[in-house]
Computed example of a mutant assay.
Amino acid sequence: MNKDLSFGPDDRRENIRSIAEVAKLFVDAGIRYGVHFTLSCDRNIARSIIHEGEFIEVNVKCPLSECERRDPKVLYKKARAGEILQFTGISAPYEPPVRPEILIELDRQNGKRVSRPGPGLSNIIYTE
């Protein structure tokens, strides 16, 4: 949909806006749609486009080292080598949600991912 965009801030913002518009179409059709926004201002743009009560913010909390370990496309390695500029978590910022409706934390000690949702949402526990 936006294959000619870069990782730069202006292109990221346009990507977020268009993704939010597509998400709104899915929500209007009764289909749940998941997207990822790295900055709070981008989440606010998406929240303003998608109908109130239809935007559910989820934070999948994972250490950067684990993201790098699980990276099948080796994008983090390329970003660290300077081959990809403005890469989230390496040379571009990531702002975790302050009050997500759902928080999924990776617990390395017992191998479980636990969702701790906000009001009105039920707990979900997955075993890896």
Rank of each mutant, 00 (worst) to 15 (best):
N2L: 08
S6V: 08
F7L: 08
G8T: 02
P9V: 01
P9Q: 05
D11M: 05
E14T: 09
N15E: 04
N15S: 10
R17F: 11
A20I: 05
A23Y: 02
A23F: 02
A23E: 06
L25M: 08
F26Y: 15
F26P: 07
F26S: 05
D28K: 09
A29W: 11
A29F: 08
G30A: 01
R32V: 11
R32A: 14
Y33R: 05
G34M: 12
G34I: 14
S40L: 11
S40C: 08
C41I: 13
D42K: 05
I45S: 01
I45Q: 00
A46E: 11
R47G: 00
S48L: 00
I49Y: 00
G53V: 03
E54T: 07
V58P: 03
N59E: 13
K61H: 14
C62N: 05
P63V: 08
C67S: 15
R69M: 12
P72N: 04
P72C: 02
L75P: 02
Y76L: 06
K78H: 06
A81H: 00
G82H: 06
I84Y: 10
Q86G: 01
G89L: 04
E95Q: 05
E95C: 01
E95W: 01
P96H: 01
I102E: 03
I102C: 08
E105L: 04
E105A: 08
R108D: 12
R108H: 13
N110C: 11
N110A: 06
N110V: 10
G111M: 08
K112F: 06
V114Y: 05
P117Q: 07
L121K: 02
N123H: 10
N123P: 10
I124H: 07
I125D: 03
Y126I: 14
T127Q: 14
E128S: 10
